[in-house]
Protein backbone atom coordinates (compact mmCIF):
# COMPACT_ATOMS: atom_id res chain seq x y z
CA UNK A 1 0.00 0.00 0.00
CA UNK A 2 3.03 2.25 0.09
CA UNK A 3 4.49 1.51 -3.32
CA UNK A 4 3.27 3.68 -6.17
CA UNK A 5 1.39 1.54 -8.67
CA UNK A 6 1.48 1.79 -12.46
CA UNK A 7 -2.13 2.95 -12.44
CA UNK A 8 -1.22 5.82 -10.20
CA UNK A 9 1.59 6.90 -12.51
CA UNK A 10 -0.79 6.79 -15.47
CA UNK A 11 -3.38 8.89 -13.62
CA UNK A 12 -0.63 11.32 -12.69
CA UNK A 13 0.30 11.70 -16.35
CA UNK A 14 -3.32 12.29 -17.36
CA UNK A 15 -3.58 14.89 -14.64
CA UNK A 16 -0.46 16.73 -15.78
CA UNK A 17 -1.79 16.87 -19.34
CA UNK A 18 -5.28 17.94 -18.21
CA UNK A 19 -3.95 20.69 -15.98
CA UNK A 20 -1.61 21.92 -18.72
CA UNK A 21 -4.51 22.17 -21.15
CA UNK A 22 -6.76 23.89 -18.62
CA UNK A 23 -3.99 26.34 -17.75
CA UNK A 24 -4.08 27.60 -21.33
CA UNK A 25 -7.68 28.82 -21.07
CA UNK A 26 -6.80 32.43 -20.13
CA UNK A 27 -4.60 32.65 -23.23
CA UNK A 28 -7.61 31.96 -25.44
CA UNK A 29 -10.21 34.16 -23.84
CA UNK A 30 -10.21 36.92 -21.27
CA UNK A 31 -13.94 37.55 -21.17
CA UNK A 32 -17.05 35.54 -20.42
CA UNK A 33 -15.55 32.09 -20.95
CA UNK A 34 -12.64 32.77 -18.60
CA UNK A 35 -15.06 34.12 -16.05
CA UNK A 36 -17.17 31.00 -16.34
CA UNK A 37 -14.05 28.83 -16.23
CA UNK A 38 -13.00 30.61 -13.06
CA UNK A 39 -16.35 29.87 -11.44
CA UNK A 40 -16.09 26.24 -12.46
CA UNK A 41 -12.56 25.89 -11.09
CA UNK A 42 -13.72 27.55 -7.88
CA UNK A 43 -16.46 24.96 -7.42
CA UNK A 44 -14.15 22.12 -8.41
CA UNK A 45 -11.72 23.25 -5.72
CA UNK A 46 -14.51 23.69 -3.15
CA UNK A 47 -16.11 20.33 -3.94
CA UNK A 48 -12.80 18.49 -3.82
CA UNK A 49 -12.01 20.04 -0.45
CA UNK A 50 -15.52 19.15 0.71
CA UNK A 51 -15.26 15.54 -0.43
CA UNK A 52 -11.93 15.27 1.38
CA UNK A 53 -13.97 15.23 4.59
CA UNK A 54 -17.53 14.35 3.66
CA UNK A 55 -16.63 11.53 1.28
CA UNK A 56 -15.13 9.12 3.80
CA UNK A 57 -17.20 10.25 6.79
CA UNK A 58 -20.63 10.64 5.11
CA UNK A 59 -21.15 13.73 7.26
CA UNK A 60 -22.84 16.49 5.30
CA UNK A 61 -20.99 19.69 6.02
CA UNK A 62 -22.82 22.95 5.34
CA UNK A 63 -20.01 25.06 6.74
CA UNK A 64 -18.38 25.72 3.36
CA UNK A 65 -19.68 29.29 3.16
CA UNK A 66 -18.43 30.00 6.68
CA UNK A 67 -14.82 28.97 5.95
CA UNK A 68 -14.96 30.56 2.52
CA UNK A 69 -16.13 33.84 4.03
CA UNK A 70 -13.45 33.73 6.71
CA UNK A 71 -10.85 33.38 3.98
CA UNK A 72 -12.13 36.35 2.00
CA UNK A 73 -12.25 38.43 5.17
CA UNK A 74 -8.65 37.63 6.05
CA UNK A 75 -7.63 39.08 2.70
CA UNK A 76 -10.08 41.98 3.01
CA UNK A 77 -8.63 43.04 6.34
CA UNK A 78 -4.97 42.36 5.64
CA UNK A 79 -4.49 43.27 1.99
CA UNK A 80 -3.06 46.73 2.69
CA UNK A 81 -0.77 45.50 5.42
CA UNK A 82 0.63 42.11 4.49
CA UNK A 83 1.75 40.40 1.26
CA UNK A 84 -0.84 38.17 -0.40
CA UNK A 85 0.93 34.79 0.10
CA UNK A 86 1.16 35.43 3.85
CA UNK A 87 -2.55 36.20 3.90
CA UNK A 88 -3.23 32.86 2.26
CA UNK A 89 -1.30 31.13 5.02
CA UNK A 90 -3.18 33.09 7.68
CA UNK A 91 -6.48 32.16 6.00
CA UNK A 92 -5.47 28.49 6.12
CA UNK A 93 -4.59 28.78 9.80
CA UNK A 94 -7.83 30.52 10.75
CA UNK A 95 -9.92 28.14 8.65
CA UNK A 96 -8.12 25.22 10.27
CA UNK A 97 -8.53 26.50 13.81
CA UNK A 98 -12.24 27.29 13.39
CA UNK A 99 -13.02 23.97 11.69
CA UNK A 100 -10.96 22.16 14.30
CA UNK A 101 -12.95 23.75 17.12
CA UNK A 102 -16.27 23.04 15.42
CA UNK A 103 -15.13 19.48 14.87
CA UNK A 104 -14.14 19.01 18.50
CA UNK A 105 -17.53 20.30 19.65
CA UNK A 106 -19.66 18.24 17.26
CA UNK A 107 -17.87 15.26 15.75
CA UNK A 108 -17.84 13.23 18.96
CA UNK A 109 -21.62 13.04 18.55
CA UNK A 110 -23.89 11.73 15.81
CA UNK A 111 -23.98 13.19 12.31
CA UNK A 112 -27.20 15.09 12.91
CA UNK A 113 -25.64 17.42 15.48
CA UNK A 114 -22.88 18.17 13.02
CA UNK A 115 -25.28 19.01 10.17
CA UNK A 116 -27.35 21.28 12.39
CA UNK A 117 -24.30 23.05 13.70
CA UNK A 118 -22.88 23.69 10.26
CA UNK A 119 -26.29 24.67 8.87
CA UNK A 120 -26.34 27.99 10.69
CA UNK A 121 -22.62 28.52 10.94
CA UNK A 122 -22.23 30.88 8.00
CA UNK A 123 -25.09 32.96 9.42
CA UNK A 124 -23.50 32.91 12.88
CA UNK A 125 -20.11 34.12 11.67
CA UNK A 126 -21.80 36.69 9.43
CA UNK A 127 -23.66 38.11 12.44
CA UNK A 128 -20.52 38.26 14.54
CA UNK A 129 -18.47 39.90 11.77
CA UNK A 130 -21.22 42.46 11.11
CA UNK A 131 -21.51 43.19 14.80
CA UNK A 132 -17.75 43.67 15.21
CA UNK A 133 -17.59 45.88 12.14
CA UNK A 134 -20.51 48.13 13.11
CA UNK A 135 -19.37 48.51 16.70
CA UNK A 136 -15.60 48.58 16.51
CA UNK A 137 -14.66 49.68 12.99
CA UNK A 138 -15.73 52.45 10.68
CA UNK A 139 -17.75 50.62 8.05
CA UNK A 140 -19.24 47.34 6.94
CA UNK A 141 -17.57 46.88 3.56
CA UNK A 142 -13.92 46.26 2.74
CA UNK A 143 -12.12 47.04 -0.50
CA UNK A 144 -9.67 44.51 -1.92
CA UNK A 145 -7.74 46.29 -4.62
CA UNK A 146 -4.94 44.27 -6.21
CA UNK A 147 -3.15 43.93 -9.53
CA UNK A 148 -4.53 40.43 -9.99
CA UNK A 149 -6.48 39.81 -13.17
CA UNK A 150 -9.03 37.01 -13.52
CA UNK A 151 -6.32 34.98 -15.24
CA UNK A 152 -4.06 35.21 -12.19
CA UNK A 153 -6.87 34.11 -9.90
CA UNK A 154 -7.71 31.29 -12.27
CA UNK A 155 -4.13 30.01 -12.25
CA UNK A 156 -3.86 30.25 -8.49
CA UNK A 157 -7.09 28.28 -8.06
CA UNK A 158 -5.99 25.67 -10.55
CA UNK A 159 -2.71 25.22 -8.67
CA UNK A 160 -4.59 24.98 -5.39
CA UNK A 161 -6.92 22.35 -6.82
CA UNK A 162 -3.90 20.28 -7.81
CA UNK A 163 -2.57 20.70 -4.29
CA UNK A 164 -5.89 19.51 -2.81
CA UNK A 165 -5.82 16.46 -5.06
CA UNK A 166 -2.28 15.65 -3.97
CA UNK A 167 -3.28 16.10 -0.33
CA UNK A 168 -6.19 13.74 -0.82
CA UNK A 169 -3.95 11.18 -2.46
CA UNK A 170 -1.40 11.42 0.35
CA UNK A 171 -4.12 11.11 3.00
CA UNK A 172 -5.43 8.04 1.26
CA UNK A 173 -2.02 6.39 1.53
CA UNK A 174 -1.49 7.49 5.11
CA UNK A 175 -2.55 6.02 8.43
CA UNK A 176 -5.29 8.65 8.57
CA UNK A 177 -6.76 7.41 5.29
CA UNK A 178 -6.48 3.81 6.43
CA UNK A 179 -8.19 4.72 9.71
CA UNK A 180 -11.02 6.41 7.79
CA UNK A 181 -11.56 3.29 5.69
CA UNK A 182 -11.79 1.19 8.85
CA UNK A 183 -14.19 3.67 10.46
CA UNK A 184 -16.29 3.62 7.31
CA UNK A 185 -16.53 -0.17 7.56
CA UNK A 186 -17.25 -0.59 11.23
CA UNK A 187 -16.85 2.03 13.91
CA UNK A 188 -16.82 -0.56 16.74
CA UNK A 189 -13.94 -2.45 15.20
CA UNK A 190 -12.16 0.86 14.63
CA UNK A 191 -12.31 1.66 18.33
CA UNK A 192 -11.11 -1.81 19.27
CA UNK A 193 -8.04 -1.66 17.06
CA UNK A 194 -7.05 1.58 18.76
CA UNK A 195 -8.44 4.27 16.45
CA UNK A 196 -9.61 7.51 18.03
CA UNK A 197 -12.31 8.05 15.43
CA UNK A 198 -13.33 11.50 16.71
CA UNK A 199 -9.74 12.68 16.37
CA UNK A 200 -9.44 11.26 12.85
CA UNK A 201 -12.64 13.03 11.78
CA UNK A 202 -11.63 16.31 13.38
CA UNK A 203 -8.26 16.16 11.63
CA UNK A 204 -9.89 15.58 8.27
CA UNK A 205 -12.43 18.37 8.82
CA UNK A 206 -9.60 20.68 9.82
CA UNK A 207 -7.68 20.01 6.60
CA UNK A 208 -10.83 20.49 4.55
CA UNK A 209 -11.76 23.73 6.37
CA UNK A 210 -8.28 25.17 5.93
CA UNK A 211 -8.35 24.57 2.17
CA UNK A 212 -11.81 26.09 1.82
CA UNK A 213 -10.63 29.21 3.63
CA UNK A 214 -7.69 29.51 1.23
CA UNK A 215 -10.07 29.23 -1.73
CA UNK A 216 -12.08 32.11 -0.26
CA UNK A 217 -8.91 34.11 0.22
CA UNK A 218 -7.80 33.60 -3.38
CA UNK A 219 -11.19 34.75 -4.63
CA UNK A 220 -11.29 37.91 -2.53
CA UNK A 221 -9.56 40.05 -5.19
CA UNK A 222 -12.23 38.96 -7.69
CA UNK A 223 -14.98 40.43 -5.53
CA UNK A 224 -13.03 43.67 -5.04
CA UNK A 225 -15.61 44.81 -2.49
CA UNK A 226 -16.39 42.51 0.43
CA UNK A 227 -19.36 42.71 2.75
CA UNK A 228 -20.80 40.08 5.08
CA UNK A 229 -23.87 39.00 3.09
CA UNK A 230 -21.90 38.23 -0.06
CA UNK A 231 -18.86 36.73 1.66
CA UNK A 232 -20.94 34.43 3.88
CA UNK A 233 -23.53 33.53 1.26
CA UNK A 234 -25.07 30.22 2.45
CA UNK A 235 -25.92 29.35 -1.15
CA UNK A 236 -22.27 28.36 -1.67
CA UNK A 237 -22.58 25.63 0.97
CA UNK A 238 -25.67 24.13 -0.62
CA UNK A 239 -24.31 24.30 -4.16
CA UNK A 240 -21.15 22.50 -3.07
CA UNK A 241 -23.21 19.72 -1.45
CA UNK A 242 -25.36 19.31 -4.56
CA UNK A 243 -22.49 19.34 -7.03
CA UNK A 244 -20.40 16.91 -5.01
CA UNK A 245 -23.22 14.45 -4.40
CA UNK A 246 -24.34 14.73 -7.99
CA UNK A 247 -20.91 13.62 -9.17
CA UNK A 248 -20.35 11.10 -6.39
CA UNK A 249 -18.22 11.15 -3.27
CA UNK A 250 -16.32 7.89 -3.34
CA UNK A 251 -13.38 9.29 -5.25
CA UNK A 252 -11.86 12.75 -5.16
CA UNK A 253 -12.37 13.45 -8.83
CA UNK A 254 -15.98 12.25 -9.09
CA UNK A 255 -17.42 15.67 -8.11
CA UNK A 256 -15.93 17.03 -11.35
CA UNK A 257 -18.72 15.27 -13.20
CA UNK A 258 -21.30 17.15 -11.15
CA UNK A 259 -19.63 20.55 -11.07
CA UNK A 260 -19.43 21.34 -14.76
CA UNK A 261 -23.04 20.72 -15.83
CA UNK A 262 -24.55 22.10 -12.65
CA UNK A 263 -22.50 25.30 -12.71
CA UNK A 264 -23.61 25.93 -16.29
CA UNK A 265 -27.23 25.15 -15.48
CA UNK A 266 -27.31 27.21 -12.30
CA UNK A 267 -25.55 30.11 -14.00
CA UNK A 268 -28.16 30.12 -16.74
CA UNK A 269 -31.19 29.77 -14.47
CA UNK A 270 -30.10 32.39 -11.96
CA UNK A 271 -29.34 34.85 -14.75
CA UNK A 272 -32.69 34.44 -16.50
CA UNK A 273 -35.06 33.48 -13.69
CA UNK A 274 -33.48 34.69 -10.43
CA UNK A 275 -36.56 33.78 -8.39
CA UNK A 276 -36.51 30.22 -9.64
CA UNK A 277 -33.00 29.27 -8.49
CA UNK A 278 -34.31 27.91 -5.18
CA UNK A 279 -36.68 25.63 -7.04
CA UNK A 280 -33.76 24.34 -9.07
CA UNK A 281 -31.84 23.57 -5.87
CA UNK A 282 -34.88 21.77 -4.47
CA UNK A 283 -35.28 19.65 -7.57
CA UNK A 284 -31.55 18.90 -7.59
CA UNK A 285 -31.65 17.64 -4.00
CA UNK A 286 -34.67 15.44 -4.66
CA UNK A 287 -33.09 14.13 -7.85
CA UNK A 288 -29.95 13.14 -5.97
CA UNK A 289 -31.84 11.31 -3.24
CA UNK A 290 -34.29 9.45 -5.41
CA UNK A 291 -32.55 8.89 -8.71
CA UNK A 292 -28.79 9.08 -8.31
CA UNK A 293 -27.95 8.21 -4.67
CA UNK A 294 -24.46 7.06 -5.72
CA UNK A 295 -23.87 10.08 -7.91
CA UNK A 296 -23.41 10.17 -11.66
CA UNK A 297 -20.19 8.23 -11.22
CA UNK A 298 -22.21 5.40 -9.67
CA UNK A 299 -24.56 5.47 -12.64
CA UNK A 300 -21.70 5.42 -15.11
CA UNK A 301 -20.01 2.54 -13.28
CA UNK A 302 -23.32 0.67 -13.23
CA UNK A 303 -23.75 1.08 -16.99
CA UNK A 304 -20.17 0.09 -17.84
CA UNK A 305 -20.44 -2.94 -15.55
CA UNK A 306 -23.63 -4.07 -17.23
CA UNK A 307 -22.04 -3.46 -20.59
CA UNK A 308 -18.94 -5.51 -19.83
CA UNK A 309 -21.09 -8.31 -18.43
CA UNK A 310 -23.06 -8.41 -21.66
CA UNK A 311 -19.82 -8.55 -23.57
CA UNK A 312 -18.63 -11.47 -21.49
CA UNK A 313 -21.86 -13.26 -22.13
CA UNK A 314 -21.67 -12.81 -25.91
CA UNK A 315 -18.11 -14.09 -25.86
CA UNK A 316 -19.10 -17.29 -24.10
Amino acid sequence: MIKITKDEIRILLYMVVAVAILACLPLLDQGYILSLGLTIVMYVALCTAWVLFSGPTHYISLATAAFFGLGTYVVGIGIDVLPFPILLIIAALIGGVVSGLVGIATLRLSGVYFVIFTLGMAELIRQIVTWIQTNFTTGIGLYVLTDFSEAHIYWMLLALTVLIFITGWLINRSRLGFAMRIIGNDETVAAHVGIDSAKAKVLLFLISGAYIAVIGAILAPRFAYIEPPSAFNPMISFLVVIMSLMGGTRTLWAPLIGVVPFTLLFDMVSARFPNHSSILLGIAFLLIVYLIPDGLIGRIEGITKRFSKKKERTHE
Partner: peptide, 18 residues
Protein backbone atom coordinates in the same frame (compact mmCIF):
# COMPACT_ATOMS: atom_id res chain seq x y z
CA UNK B 1 -30.20 10.29 8.42
CA UNK B 2 -28.25 11.35 5.34
CA UNK B 3 -31.14 10.53 2.99
CA UNK B 4 -33.77 12.33 5.03
CA UNK B 5 -31.53 15.35 5.43
CA UNK B 6 -31.06 15.59 1.67
CA UNK B 7 -34.71 14.90 0.85
CA UNK B 8 -36.01 17.50 3.28
CA UNK B 9 -33.46 19.96 1.92
CA UNK B 10 -35.07 19.34 -1.44
CA UNK B 11 -38.52 20.04 -0.02
CA UNK B 12 -37.14 23.10 1.77
CA UNK B 13 -35.81 24.71 -1.40
CA UNK B 14 -38.82 23.69 -3.44
CA UNK B 15 -41.24 25.31 -0.99
CA UNK B 16 -39.03 28.35 -0.56
CA UNK B 17 -38.72 28.71 -4.32
CA UNK B 18 -42.48 28.46 -4.80
Amino acid sequence: EVDSILATFGILFLLEGL
